[in-house]
Amino acid sequence: MDSKQPLRGETVIFTSTKKSEEPFDLVKRYGGTPVSLPLIKTRERFASDDETQLEFATSYDWLIFTSQSAVAAFEQKMERFNKDASAFNVNVAAVGDKTANALERIGFRVDFIPQVFSADVFVKQFNPEGESLRALFIKGNLAGTLITTELSLTVDEWTIYETLPETSHADEIVELVKAEPSVSILFASPSAVAVFKDRVVPSLNWTGYTIGAIGHITERALQEAGASVTVMPETYTLPELVQSLAESKRKELI
């Protein structure tokens, strides 16, 4: 096998919602076949006070985003109520380069990104100067409590999107693993792990394919579910996970 295409013959299944072509293009560049079979889906959460909440958001010192899904839902609310980034004279914190890029695309300047793209690292590194600072954590329904409870400044929450199980792809994952000679399955969240454990593992167990994870929290969820994680990148993004997978497969050729 050509070491420049270490994923040749590999079917790479992405279990997260597709947000960019970059990781799929990388799989193809390395000779593999990318397949999008998300096990979760997100949708904006609507409330009667959305317009009021959006107006309140302009009064905070910091806005905190931990996912591209939060940015997308926030953008939808801005468009619905005719606001743009210029209405927000606030500092912005983002967990992850992709989240930061999504914010910049809609006109925000990102003032803080943690070195490791995880909420538990964020709360250790985020320490803005100033007295009586107030932050708004713009979040999904499954977000943990660390950011709200562990920061020194006052943090309010606004839940603007929901993460839901997407079970319709479970059977297809089972069929691919059984049919293809070599399969890697990539996980980007504990939510996808939970659906996989409930709907896929009973038909497959945790063996016969390579498992990759973004982030130590997702890795821990997989391990607690009984999986052995082969690949996890130092930088918590899907492109880096694909790069790490390619490097792992390349080493197998040596």
Rank of each mutant, 00 (worst) to 15 (best):
E234F: 15
T17Q: 13
V155M: 13
A194E: 13
N82S: 14
G130W: 15
G31E: 12
T52R: 12
H216W: 10
N91H: 10
R8I: 14
M78G: 10
L176K: 07
I113W: 02
D49Y: 02
I147S: 08
R80S: 05
A57R: 00
F74L: 00
D25H: 13
E104R: 00
K83A: 04
A143E: 12
Y60N: 03
D61S: 03
L146V: 15
F137C: 04
T58Q: 13
F187G: 13
G32M: 11
I214P: 05
P38Q: 10
D198N: 13
F74Y: 01
I173V: 15
I106S: 01
A73H: 00
R220V: 05
V231D: 06
Q76E: 03
S48D: 10
A179G: 14
Y161K: 03
F112S: 12
K139S: 10
R29T: 14
P34D: 05
L142Q: 02
N205Y: 11
F88L: 03
K139A: 13
R80G: 02
D198V: 11
E75W: 00
A246D: 08
E55S: 08
D111P: 01
G208L: 00
F112D: 11
K41R: 10
S86C: 11
I113S: 01
P38L: 09
T11L: 09
R199Q: 12
I217D: 07
E79L: 15
S36I: 09
K41Q: 10
A100I: 04
F108P: 10
L63A: 03
A85W: 06
L164D: 02
I254D: 06
F122M: 05
L63V: 04
S189W: 06
T167R: 13
Q5D: 11
H216A: 11
I214D: 04
H169F: 09
K98G: 00
A188G: 07
T154V: 15
L245W: 14
L245V: 15
V229D: 12
I40T: 06
L146F: 15
E79Y: 11
T207F: 11
N91C: 09
T52I: 08
T163K: 03
